[in-house]
């Protein structure tokens, strides 16, 4: 599925992933391919991306860390929308 992570300061990530874990306000949850359409509020925590060959732009590389094959982005709050196999994270 396709994922975009955008923040007010720019697009942080855009590309293909296998799954994504987001820190929902009522607890973290993971979304896989063909997840039902959802809009959720995110709290403080980590957004974790899984997949092969995830490429992060050099400009924003220092915001991400790689842990056990996952690409991790800490956020303060945000919103996530998933529809038609396209997930968009609005991160702050």
């Amino acid at each position: 599925m396709k994922a975009d992570i955008v923040s007010p300061e720019g697009t942080l990530f855009s590309g293909e992933i296998d799954s994504i874990v987001v820190p929902g306000v009522n607890g973290s949850f993971e979304m896989l391919n063909n997840h039902a359409p959802i809009i959720a509020i995110l709290g403080k925590g980590d957004v974790r991306l899984k997949g092969k060959g995830i490429l992060i732009d050099n400009e924003v590389k220092d915001k991400f860390t790689v842990k056990q094959g996952e690409v991790v982005l800490p956020i303060n709050s945000g919103t996530v929308e998933m529809k038609n196999n396209h997930v968009i994270v609005l991160a702050e």
């Binding site: 929902g24 306000v25 009522n26 039902a36 359409p37 959802i38 809009i39 959720a40 509020i41 919103t79 529809k83």
Partner: peptide
């Protein structure tokens, strides 16, 4: 679309 809302729709609006 028929979205799942987490938590509720109204709460999301208030947050946004």
């Amino acid at each position: 679309l028929d979205y799942i809302y987490e938590p509720s729709q109204a709460e999301i609006v208030l947050e946004l």
